[in-house]
């Protein structure tokens, strides 16, 4: 486990691309005291660590796959109608410096 510190909290926020208002880091830090105690409580439940993590509410699987039939796409003007940052039919952002590979593994 990564130790919860105020720096870690701020880093989490930064990675989620928002800034916390003054006082919020402290509040989260305090909340973590509660959360960690609750995590310890979960840890103490008999058999919990032998259980299979559950994502779906029940075990029924799906067999459905979509047929590879393209549908008519939405017109660009409509599709981008909610964007306030456009040039023509493209979305514009401040210049993305370098390329993605500078930061991401694909």
């Amino acid at each position: 486990m990564i130790k919860v510190t105020k720096e870690v909290i701020d880093l989490c926020a930064e990675n989620l691309l928002f800034k916390l208002n003054p006082g919020q880091t402290d509040l989260i830090y305090e909340e973590f005291n509660t959360i960690m105690a609750q995590i310890d409580f979960l840890k103490g439940i008999k058999g919990v660590d032998d259980a299979e993590p559950m994502t779906f509410p029940y075990s029924e699987h799906q067999r459905f796959l979509r047929q590879d039939k393209p549908i008519k796409p939405v017109k660009a003007e409509l599709e981008l109608s909610n964007s306030h940052s456009r040039i023509g039919n493209q979305i514009k952002l401040p210049k993305v410096v370098g390329n993605k590979n500078d930061e991401m593994d694909e």
């Binding site: 660009a76 599709e79 493209q90």
Partner: peptide
């Protein structure tokens, strides 16, 4: 054409 081949 840009953004002409999309759905929501």
């Amino acid at each position: 054409a840009p953004n002409s081949q999309t759905v929501p």
